[in-house]
């Protein structure tokens, strides 16, 4: 019954590895990025996976496996994986990793790279569009804004979308905000 409410997560993590999929320099690309500097210190102990609340209930999400695949250079497979988007960013792994790998930040770096290539759940596009339009990540209904007065709350300051757009103009991800096309990853 529970399964019915959930879109199936495509799990491409268990297929056999072909030498042709390996990008031997991927790990060095990663360790140059803010948050993934310590990736190579991972000694595959599995603490991150065993303490991950998402791994407890997901059949496919395993942070240790994702880090291992990234180190092996399975770039495309990691970046195109729906599984990558399951992390709840609770930072338990980051705080408990005996090697100080900042696991959650490595996952974030991988997601950022996937997003650059256009692989990300649609919900992020909606939130980004909302920030660009109103300054807020959710479209706060007019009614809610008006109701604040009756609730005795001060009025909500108007966001400053023009200024936000200027600040974000040079950001690479914004290229996805021009065309409203579907993003490949499932929501």
């Amino acid at each position: 019954m529970v399964e019915n409410v959930t879109p199936t997560i495509k799990d491409n993590m268990r297929e056999p590895i072909k030498a042709s999929e390996i990008d031997p320099k991927f790990k060095y690309q990663l360790t140059k990025m803010h948050g993934a500097e310590k990736l190579l210190k991972c000694f595959q102990c599995g603490t991150c996976t065993s303490d991950c609340p998402v791994a407890r209930y997901s059949d496919s999400y395993r942070p240790r496996t994702i880090l291992h695949m990234a180190r092996l250079g399975l770039k495309e497979r990691v970046l195109k994986s729906d599984t990558l988007w399951l992390c709840a960013a609770c930072f338990t792994c980051t705080d408990r990793c005996p090697q100080d790998v900042e696991v959650a930040s490595v996952i974030r770096v991988l997601r950022n790279l996937a997003a650059e290539e256009g692989f990300f759940p649609a919900v992020f596009k909606d939130q980004c569009a909302s920030v660009l339009e109103s300054g807020y990540a959710f479209k706060i209904p007019e009614l809610r804004i008006k109701k604040r007065e009756t609730l005795g709350l001060p009025s909500l300051p108007k966001g400053n979308p023009e200024s936000i757009k200027k600040s974000l103009k040079g950001v690479n991800f914004m290229k996805h905000m021009k065309n409203k096309g579907e993003s490949p990853a499932k929501q």
Binding site: H34, G35, W85, A89, R108, V109, R111, N112, A115, F120, F124, Q127, C128, V131, G135, Y136, A137, P157, K158, G159, N160, I164, S167, L168, V171, N172, F173, M174
Partner: peptide, 21 residues
């Protein structure tokens, strides 16, 4: 007088956007 999203919701897709916001 003015504020915007703290950036966190967009961290998964763009750390840079999060930091700027």
């Amino acid at each position: 007088p003015e504020f915007n999203c703290c950036g966190l919701p967009l961290d998964p897709v763009s750390h840079e956007t999060m930091m700027i916001l």
